[in-house]
Nucleic acid binder design. Sequence first.
DNA 1: CTCCTGTTCAAACGACCGTTTGAACTATGC
DNA 2: GCATAGTTCAAACGGTCGTTTGAACAGGAG
Lengths: 221, 221
Amino acid sequence: MPEQAVAGGKENSVETPVESTRERLLNVAEQRFGEGGYEGTSLRAITVAAAANIAAVNYHFGSKEALLRAAVARAMAPVNAERRRRLDQLEASGQPEPEQLIRAFIEPGLDLVLRRGERGAVVARFIGRIAFDPSQRIRELYAAESDPIEARYLSALQTALPQATPDSVAFGYVNMLGLLALHQSQALSRAPGLGDEEDPGKLAENLIAFLVAAFDRGLRS
Amino acid sequence: MPEQAVAGGKENSVETPVESTRERLLNVAEQRFGEGGYEGTSLRAITVAAAANIAAVNYHFGSKEALLRAAVARAMAPVNAERRRRLDQLEASGQPEPEQLIRAFIEPGLDLVLRRGERGAVVARFIGRIAFDPSQRIRELYAAESDPIEARYLSALQTALPQATPDSVAFGYVNMLGLLALHQSQALSRAPGLGDEEDPGKLAENLIAFLVAAFDRGLRS
DNA sequence: CTCCTGTTCAAACGACCGTTTGAACTATGC
DNA sequence: GCATAGTTCAAACGGTCGTTTGAACAGGAG
């Protein structure tokens, strides 16, 4: 077992804690997959950037798709955990408002991930891109990762919006999901300096206000 | 010049007017590109399905990307024309309501394209997919095709929503663009039978209502 | 008929793809 | 010391990619 990250070597004490090959592959994978998509990114491009051998991918993960799956799972874990935590908290304190539910969905996706400097933006773009990859196979791979919470959000939104039909609540939910993914992937910011990227917090507030209005008054009754 | 589509031959009088190789390539290209994305679709898969030779692509278009560009231009032309027509009409009859502007943007994208049976759905998915392709190069290719109208919509929306800041109007516009593309690409309909695909007209009305509410009350003032 | 232009074709080009192999290297347990 | 399990490596595997080539074919004009 080489490279145990001696945790106090001569150099790279905190800045670069000697990531393992496996971690470097995951880091570079989510960066490159987020930039070029799954089909548009080769394993060789990833392994070169990660200073790893081609065979390391199949050794640590088994295949290109398994690498993607591992990267998606790792990237989604904190987002899902935060969403669960907020849902638990909201449900524990009575009937939540629609805005609180929407906020509990959007903020973990934007805030928690965009506020972490360069790496956070990379993770956000990766998630947003994979969620709507051209290949249905890969979209399902992402959907499987966020499915468990989807049902909780749908029923919570339904009770918070009793006048809306179940179909229209589901319609609003997929719109929320889609808009979040689009802003995460930064595919909407065509020209630089649209006024969004400057402040991720402001983007979250704008998006939440947009969705709250749509949920409150834009769904069929 | 063979295959002049004799316009009244023995068979295939209306059903299959002997499409030229060029037309068959465009038809298959927008179908396959819409299903698998640009990177995920090979020229060989296209030419086999179009019953054409590989070299025909480079003869008629020059390259894979030029084929995509031609397909995008052909698919967007009627949508852009209809949007221009509606904008002209609205501007000729006084100050349009936000809903009228949103309708003039959404309906040509969904209605005009989803109401035309199988081919319309293929074209819609193609447009929606290309608009948010992982590759920035391809997204720009699409954006160039719809840019000319974008400025008109932005200024019309701004005067229809005088209380909203220019930034928030632009924010609403990209959200509208993104949601339309997502519904066109059918990437939002995960499970079959969500209640949307059954009636494209109903989807358009739901989406318009959703967006009108968001524009009217969900933008920063 | 002969030329000429437009179109199609099989075949091959070099490059890159994801995956596999088997040997080399490293640290640990005995 | 030796054996062992975990990890990395250069090299090659068969396949597919987009593109190019040069010959073959088709119809219209002279």
